[in-house]
Design a protein around this nucleic acid. Structure first.
Length: 280
DNA sequence: CCCGCGTCCTGCGGGC
DNA sequence: TGCCCGCAGGACGCGG
């Protein structure tokens, strides 16, 4: 479920809760969750200290002593919870880190889509998604020049393009719909037909929206909450996502939902129209 | 190389 | 009510 702002919120929560803690042992309850054979994964993590938690796009990089890093991707529904030793194990708990202070860090994931890759620090690029990941959606990293170049080279529809992590890191289905609505760009618009003004508008909205969502601790759907039990509140600031049939907040036209590249896509059919080449 | 599609999983809500 | 189907904030790997 989580997109960049939710993963960043998890990163901050984990930093508060477990940075500096030592792992006594690890239990892998669902072997496919980890890249190494279960026993090797468990053995390698024995007695390691969690030094800090970094993030790249939607990936958490859990830095451990002895130059080890767990590359953790939550995919749709992964979450970390800290529980006291002895708390009942939920049916969706797949990895348990026993800490030396008596607490446990538990990885829970209803759909089992999440993955943990244990690698040597510095060799994160051996993880498939990190090899090709695009720039972070920040003022410094996501430059106008870069956007102009990649947009000029593809005829792909802009919505699926924004979901491609090798182009820009961190956007998912919700924020892609939101930034296109904010930028008044139709989700089916081919990227090489978006004017420079449109690209600049989109870039500004991507950067600002991600920052705003991080400030709001991310978007909560279902019963998602962060490691520290803190639910995000950004869902209250969504303009189009999940608002099918409700009036557009700019013009009152009912929001439409279509399917693009297998993903639900929300937009305003009046504010967001497909333009001709470079016609804004 | 690019693109679209199936696949990995479980739970929930809508419709019959 | 019960069942079946489609859908869900992701991304990889495959084949064309």
């Amino acid at each position: 479920m989580p997109e960049l702002p939710e993963v960043e919120t998890v990163r901050r929560g984990l930093t508060e809760l477990v940075a500096g803690s030592q792992i006594r042992s690890v239990d892998v309850l669902y072997a496919k969750m980890v890249n190494l054979p279960k026993v090797a994964f468990e053995k390698a993590l024995k007695n390691k200290t969690i030094e800090k938690i970094d993030r790249r796009g939607k990936y958490l990089l859990i830095r451990l002593s002895d130059d080890l890093t767990i590359v953790s991707h939550l995919r749709m529904e992964g979450k970390y919870d800290v529980e006291p030793e002895g708390a009942p194990i939920g049916k969706h708990t797949h990895v348990i880190f026993h800490l030396t202070d008596g607490r446990q860090l538990r990885y829970n994931d209803t759909r089992k889509f999440g993955r943990m890759n244990l690698v040597n620090t510095g060799e994160e690029l051996s993880v498939a998604g990190l090899k090709t990941i695009g720039p972070e959606p920040t003022e410094q990293d996501l430059t106008v020049d870069y956007m102009e170049t990649i947009f000029g080279k593809s005829k792909k529809m802009v919505k699926p393009f924004l979901l491609d992590q090798s182009k820009i890191a961190g956007l998912g289905n919700i924020y892609a719909d939101e930034v296109l609505w904010l930028s008044k760009i139709h989700p089916e618009q081919p990227v090489n037909s978006i004017s420079l003004a449109g690209i600049k508008r989109l870039r500004k909205n991507i950067i600002a929206e991600i920052q705003k969502a991080i400030a709001g601790h991310g978007t909560t759907v279902h019963s998602y909450s962060t490691a520290s039990g803190e639910a995000g509140n950004f869902q209250n600031q969504l303009n189009v996502y999940g608002r099918e049939g409700e009036p557009c907040l700019r013009c009152g036209t009912p929001i439409v939902k279509i399917k693009l590249a297998q993903r639900g896509t929300h937009f305003c059919p009046k504010c967001q129209v497909v333009h001709g080449v470079n016609n804004d």
